[in-house]
């Protein structure tokens, strides 16, 4: 890295390790959300643009549960219990929403021209976003401040408890999803439908039910991401789904849409590009990119990928349809 001012780098190990942890944190959220985009694309070849709102609804569900169970008064072991309940509740709300949306907004358009479900998805996205904005008078809500503060050092890294929790539970969810997809009967059915729905139905697979399961699994990941986002950033609002949604979509494209490992790799790649990448650019003489530049970097990356390697890092092989 000859362009980078090496002495400066060497002097600020703490700074760079912080950026690294930030990259991991953001990347975890992008990866969790990106899984939903990539799985739906895998079976339907459709971009589910309402997925960001499914994430937002999960965040609000978690907020509702935490508030109902005591809000800022929750303490001690109950903190862990309520957060667990909030995570499960958010998964359920997100999954339920996605299942209903699939049934009423996508399934009737399954055989329509490809633009139709895309527009339907954008419509659902706007509907859900404004529904929540309306119900909250377009005001932000604040997650109860119950997560234990503090951090610990791991080598050069200084990680807060909440970051540790966020990264660890994201990874746990990804492993959980991977096991379902690779090791269970339902996972085999999902992969079979992704490859060839007609052949899968000849095996006795209920294709419609399997597609619902894909939406449900992806939405559950987004619901968890919603709660983690709320616990970490604390501020949530009805419009919060848009940007993470489109970033996660970028991550899925970056990794190779349709590929599950690709979504994870793309999520973390984007997370690091926005944090570590931006600060590395700042090391160039005369460059000073503020925090807002992370979006510019993310979408420049999207355009670059689309131009030079539209299949993404983990290109899904073209499905052979017998």
């Amino acid at each position: 890295m000859p362009l980078v001012d090496a002495p400066h780098l060497a002097l600020s190990v703490g700074f760079w390790s912080d950026q690294f942890v930030n990259g991991l944190t953001t990347g975890s959220l992008y990866a969790l959300i990106a899984l939903g985009y990539t799985m739906v694309y895998g079976v339907l070849k459709m971009i589910n643009f309402s997925h960001g709102e499914v994430f937002m609804l999960g965040s609000f569900a978690g907020y509702g549960i935490l508030t109902a169970m005591g809000g800022n008064d929750i303490s001690g072991v109950m903190v862990a219990v309520t957060i667990l309940v909030a995570l499960i509740g958010a998964m359920a709300v997100s999954a339920g929403t996605a299942a209903v949306v699939e049934r009423i907004a996508y399934r009737p358009l399954r055989n329509a021209p490809r633009l139709a479900p895309l527009i339907s998805a954008i419509g659902v996205s706007i509907f859900l976003q404004y529904l929540v904005l309306d119900q909250t008078d377009a005001r932000a809500k604040f997650y109860p401040d119950i997560f234990p503060r503090g951090d610990f050092a791991a080598g050069p890294f200084d990680i807060t408890y909440i970051q540790t929790f966020l990264i660890a539970s994201s990874l746990a969810m990804m492993v959980f999803l991977y096991v379902i997809i690779q090791r269970t009967r339902m996972g085999r059915a999902i992969r079979a439908v992704a490859e060839n729905p007609a052949n899968a139905s000849l095996m006795g697979v209920d294709v419609n039910r399997t597609i619902v399961m894909v939406f449900v699994l992806g939405a559950a990941m987004a619901g968890v991401a919603g709660v983690l986002h709320g616990l970490f950033f604390q501020t949530i609002r009805g419009s919060m789904g848009f940007l993470p949604g489109i970033k996660a979509f970028t991550a899925a494209v970056l990794g190779g849409i349709g590929s599950i490992p690709g979504a994870v790799a793309g999520g973390y790649a984007l997370g690091f590009a926005e944090t570590v990448g931006r600060e590395l650019l700042n090391e160039l003489p005369g460059v000073d990119l503020g925090n807002q530049w992370r979006d510019v970097i993310a979408f420049s990356l999207l355009v670059t990928i689309l131009v030079f390697r539209p299949t993404g890092i983990f290109a899904e092989r073209a499905t052979s349809r017998a």
Partner: peptide
Amino acid sequence: VPEGRGIFHRLSVYENLLMGAYQ
């Protein structure tokens, strides 16, 4: 067994056999 055999190319041979017993 359809024309063109309908093998799932990305599933392993063993997984293809399991798909046969899916129902």
